[in-house]
Design a protein around this nucleic acid. Structure first.
Lengths: 236, 236
DNA sequence: TGAGAAGGGTACGGTACCGTACAAAGAAGA
DNA sequence: TCTTCTTTGTACGGTACCGTACCCTTCTCA
């Protein structure tokens, strides 16, 4: 009997679901380890499962012939596979694991059925989609207005929220990919953040030291989406 | 008897709705002229109506203390007020009219009721939200990877699709706001596009001359979202 | 018709970031 | 311990865009 209990799940969406709704999903939830660089949702292919993240981190990535770029970040605050609840079975975006952990996986059909049957379920998952839209909107803003240091600070803050660990595995190369900048540009910015005492950088790892200072750097681009998320999840 | 007939609406979402769903909405649809700079959805306030655009153009704008920036564009291809179908009544984003026209307005409660009652309605409106997410994702990409000319070309193409007129009212000042760049930067880029025969610029107006060339400039940032929209609307 | 406003053109120094290249240092396996 | 790969540090010229400033043209309206 490995069905998850609502009291013991870490995913915040599953936590706030009315018990009836959770019961609807529980028989179909399947605990799965998620591994670094694993693709949970491939591009333009039928989505077989949605993943409620319990631990770890997943990026929603827009890719083109010329390159790729992160457009959204999902942790234990949400799920990947939003197209399923938006009435379609595929998307041009890739969802890829960026931090090891665990997810509760549910078959597409089961999620859709539950979504169709329950208005409260639609409310919770819909509001999460809304918060994701706000997050992506903030990313548009950040890419347009902030320099690399600011974007780096914003991104580290977002990851810190979702991993809930002060130390995270991050190479400069990976950060360059995510932020859409040169790798040496990341190196310089990492030094600036480190010099200001915001982080401690080690080979392949970064430790968060001072969130406040990073929030100053990120300015308005950090906080709006986070506040919206909290507001939306607090709604009945 | 001023209720709109489905055969005569120009909004593509209303067109593809099953007749039963359209009938559900029709009694509540109210034809409204939309005026330049009019705010259809204010920030962080209860949304009273959604607007299915029949003609004209609306921008979804992210604003902060330091500035504002367009994150999405809606025309006769969609509607503004997406938070209503995502289970909430407000959003930090502003929806503002950028091109005069007309919209079919519907009270929030009526839209929500219809959304709740009909799975097919959820499908159509949900898929539109998905296409909007893809559009915003492409904007993230465009802002990160393209120079001003490219972003300008992309934006003109998107507006051209939605206004369906070769000539559109656009000041450099406004373009600078939308693209998040300096006004003189826009002037230079407009000249480049004009010199390449892509557009003809006049005081306060721009005429589209050569879409193909602009698509070359915009590269991958134009087309993905548009293809996704067509695919999604074609789904049963 | 003439004043004011709105829109557009141009210039100039400054800088953030680019593309590229190469070397040093840490980790991992033989 | 030596080799090899990954990751990080640093340098260099080039350029796209910035902030700011000023002037000219076109439109509007009294």
């Amino acid at each position: 009997m490995s069905q998850p209990q609502q009291a013991s799940v870490r995913n915040r969406l599953l936590q706030v679901l009315p018990p009836d709704d959770f019961t609807r999903l529980a028989p179909h939830l399947d605990a799965q380890p998620i591994k670094l660089r694993e693709v949970l949702i491939p591009a333009d292919e039928p989505i077989s499962h949605a993943y409620f993240i319990e631990e770890g981190l997943c990026s929603i990535i827009g890719h083109t012939a010329e390159g790729r770029l992160e457009i959204g970040t999902v942790g234990y605050d949400g799920f990947v596979g939003t197209p399923l609840v938006l009435g379609t079975d595929r998307t041009p975006h890739v969802s890829m694991v960026q931090g090891e952990g665990m997810a509760l996986r549910i078959p597409a059909a089961a999620l859709r059925a539950a979504f169709d049957e329950s208005a409260t379920m639609r409310g919770v998952l819909g509001r999460y989609v809304q918060s994701l839209i706000v997050q992506v909107g903030q990313t548009v803003y950040a890419n347009a207005e902030l320099n690399i240091e600011g974007r780096l600070a914003r991104w580290i803050l977002m990851i810190h929220d979702r991993l809930q660990k002060d130390e995270m595995p991050l190479t400069h190369d990976f950060l360059a990919l995510i932020l859409g900048v040169r790798r040496p540009g990341v190196t310089t910015s990492v030094h600036i953040l480190e010099g200001a005492g915001m982080i401690k950088a080690m080979r392949g790892r970064v430790r968060v030291l001072d969130r406040e200072k990073m929030m100053d750097l990120a300015g308005d681009t950090y906080g709006v989406a986070e506040a919206e998320y909290e507001r939306l999840l607090a709604e009945a």
